[in-house]
Design a binder for these strands. Structure first.
Lengths: 249, 249
DNA sequence: AAGTGGTCTAGACCACCGC
DNA sequence: CGGTGGTCTAGACCACTTT
């Protein structure tokens, strides 16, 4: 008898445009999330699993690898593949605060404080890899969740990347607007730190003077390696934290 | 003529125990880091590259994928593979503060404030997935770099994971000691936030009262899915920040 | 010695992009 | 349309872990 008969019940759809390895990975993830495969369980080996699901070993490996990279499974040569003994997984990777809040079931709202085009200052030009003085869109927005201020966000984008309408910015996240404009962000270099709030920040965020803020500075690149966004955001330390899952590769 | 002749100069060693895909990836990375392949350059397609290096296409793909995951390359179907237009990459993944400081050329030092075994309190037991009251090692350490305080670190480990000697803790990082003990950390769930320093923290860290601190709470799992460490660390916001590279997968 | 995951191959077909 | 990366296969051999 197999250690995990639940896996044998997975069926793949070869007529679907969804890749086989992804179908398998998602079904496995569902079985793990639902508890049908318990935390700590050891899976059958790759060859048995591949046979049970009717896919090749490389495809099965790829599905497993996908979940290993997301921290749901761990594997050790000569030993086997096991489900990690974690209750909740929040393997966020590249996401925006807007998306995060929606996922958390909060009601996000955005107030646009500034949205204008002007010449890039040196710091911005350096971060974006463009010439100083080149036109950039400068944004400043206040993000609220359930009408409570959460973050103050300052962004700069090369003017040729995106045309911005204030109305759009109040109803959609910046990343969503970029996606709609055909800009696909693939890589971001981030730096996360902490500092005390300035009086102006404290006022906008509804914090006391000198409150601890979480700061995040980011430069994002699209799928042709072009810098498309530079942002400096500050979050209320009392109301927000970054959660992430790191995996050794 | 190829767009990047430098790649053709890569030679692989088939007698080496280092995997072929890794040899190729490292050589590519070196060529990019040294500037022999400039930022923004488009590489030849996979099949040409594979032929030039004398490896199969899957192996070549794997090498490229490795660098894509690390944010050095971006690829787009129907278009090609390009070098990202970033100057410096610091794609830290799963690492310890000790390792970070060594890499940055700083001189780290550790003072052990507490190292004792006792029963797990509820918060700790929950995080580690063990029974409340089970024996855990409790550590509190002050990390300094060039004799300047940087962080105050509190850790809990199940008592059966590691025997601890205070002397070891002052000369080696916790993760290094775990590695030596045969514990291989694979996954960590982290939460990063900010808050104001308590008077005791301010005193230990040499900060003013209410200074902004960067907080990191982490639970780490080894390669058989077992929780092996729970830690709550606070860093001086004025002296430390997390840098990371995120890649959409 | 037996069982596991890790690597590598040669080839096929498909989906997407830009001309 | 031609060129690119994305997926999938069947099989081989190897390295590591445990018994």
């Amino acid at each position: 008898m197999a250690t995990t008969d639940a896996v044998a019940g997975i069926a793949v759809d070869r007529t679907s445009p969804v890749p086989l390895y992804f179908q398998v990975a998602q079904e496995l993830q569902r079985l793990i999330a639902s508890g049908e495969i318990e935390a700590g369980t050891r899976l059958d080996n790759e060859i048995v699993l591949a046979d049970q699901l009717g896919v090749s070993r490389p495809t099965m490996r790829r599905a497993i690898q996908y979940l290993v990279e997301r921290g749901l499974l761990v594997r050790k040569r000569g030993v086997g593949t096991q489900v990690v003994r974690t209750s909740v997984q929040r393997p966020l990777e590249l996401s925006s605060l807007y998306d995060d809040l929606v996922l958390a079931g909060r009601r996000p709202r955005t107030t646009v404080i500034a949205a204008e085009t002007g010449p890039a200052e040196d710091e911005v030009a350096t971060a974006l890899g463009i010439d100083p003085g080149a036109p950039v869109v400068h944004l400043q927005r206040l993000r609220l969740a359930d009408d409570e201020p959460i973050a103050l966000m300052t962004n700069y984008l090369p003017a040729d990347v995106l045309e911005l309408a204030t109305a759009d910015l109040e109803t959609r996240g910046l990343y969503e607007l970029l996606r709609i404009a055909g800009v696909h962000i693939r890589i971001a270099n981030q730096s996360i730190g902490a500092r005390n709030a300035t009086p102006a920040e404290a006022r906008l965020l509804g914090e006391t003077r000198g409150a601890a803020l979480l700061t995040m500075t980011r430069t994002a690149y699209d799928d042709i390696g072009r810098a498309v966004e530079y942002g400096t955001h500050v979050y209320r330390g009392s109301r927000y934290a970054f959660s992430l899952t790191l995996v050794e590769r």
